[in-house]
Structure formats: C-alpha cells, structure tokens
Amino acid sequence: MSHSSPAAAALRASLPVLFGYVPLGIAFGLLFDGLGHPWYFATLMGLLVFAGAAQFLAVGLLAAHAGLLEVAVTTFLLNSRHLFFGLSLLTRFRVGGWRKFYLVFGLTDETYSLLTGTRPPEGVPQVSYDLWVTGLNQLWWVSGCTLGALLGRAVAFDTAGLEFTLTALFAVLVLEQYRATRALLPFLVALGSGFLALVLFRQEHMLLLSIALSTAILVAHGKTRQWTPRST
C-alpha cells in the first residue's frame, strides 16, 4: 500500500475502526429495524448524528415516544465527554469553513483516538489525513447502520467477539501514546479516576465522570507545575 497518499494512509489507520464500526452499526440497524420505520432512516441517523451510544439510546427513546426536550437533554449528557475532546484539540484543526466543521462534527471516541494517536506519514498534510480518517470512519459507521436496517434478520453471522477490535485498538493507542509522551502521569491519573468512577458510580456514567475527573486533576497539576512532556 502506498504511504504517500492521504487516503491510503488514513485507510490503513482506520481499518480497525471498520471492523469495530460495521458490526456495531449492524447491531444498531437491527434494533432500529424493530421499530418498523423504513431502513433509510437508519442511514440518515448515521449520516446526521454519527454517535454510537446516542443512536442506541434513540431506539429506546423512539419506542417510548420521548419528548423532544428529553431527547435533547439526554443526548447532550450522554455525549458530553466529547466536550473534553475539543478542549485538547483547539490548536489542531488549522483550517476553516466546511473542513473544520466536518472535523468537529465527526469527533467520535474512535476518530478522536485515531487523530491524537496516529500521525500521517512524511509528506502527507495533516488536514487531509484528518479529513480522510474522519470520512472513512463515518463511511464504516453509515454502512453498518444501513446494512443492519436493510437486511434485518437476514444477516445472522457469528460475529461474537468481533467487538474486541475496538478494545485492541485502544490498547495499541495507549502504547503509542506512551511512546509519544514518555510521561506516566496521564496514564496513572486515568487509571485512578477510572477505577474510582467504576466503584462509586453506575457503569453508564463511568466514562464521562472519569474523563471529567482526569481533566480536573491534570489541569490542577498543570497549573501548579510547569511540567512539559517530551513530545515527538
């Protein structure tokens, strides 16, 4: 595979997300199919919302005929961990117009992970690489949503365990992050916050609360000490 084109480099980086997003999207599509709406609304949701957890939640909210205000508040709270993603990317998206809009719009957990954990090869502009990664990730997600809703129960193949792709992706990115920062502190703060949140709070709130707690600790630490990790 050529490493000089942004598309090829982004494809290589986003392949693990393909194997994670397609089965997850199919699972969503199957659930959505149960509501009895035409399949293309699952596609539309993948195109406009592009958020895994929120779309699974949507199936429940739609079935319960939840009010629009409830939909808005629940979705915002569920996705509020993304607030912290943007905080750490303020100087990253050095473009304007639709390019920046799309990069911000497509900032899922997995896109954020790839954009901060991988880098384009020599000679590939950062912005093209970022756009391709985001676009490909959304393509995998929309394909999964569509397949699940379109084929319904016809796609019953044994994918048990395939979801481990995303676990493995995050494990690899943790290693790559350590290689880039050579600082143990962020990992230790995250482990401490994560276990504390798991013990103290219900599991569905664990991610948001532990990210918030880690951010607070790291900000406090950064303010008290001018400490800078070596970044490559």
């Binding site: 750490s88 100087t91 502190l185 990210i211 790291l218």
Partner: peptide
C-alpha cells in the same frame, strides 16, 4: 493550561476508553 491539556488528555482518554 489548554496547551498542556492538549498533550496529556489524549493518553488519559485512551486509557479510560480501554478501561471502559
């Protein structure tokens, strides 16, 4: 502070996503 966060938050978030 925000520049610092830009460097240390990604490793922390990645660790938490793995834990999650």
């Amino acid at each position: 502070t925000l520049l610092y966060l830009g460097r240390v938050l990604p490793p922390a978030v990645m660790t938490l996503l793995l834990l999650y």
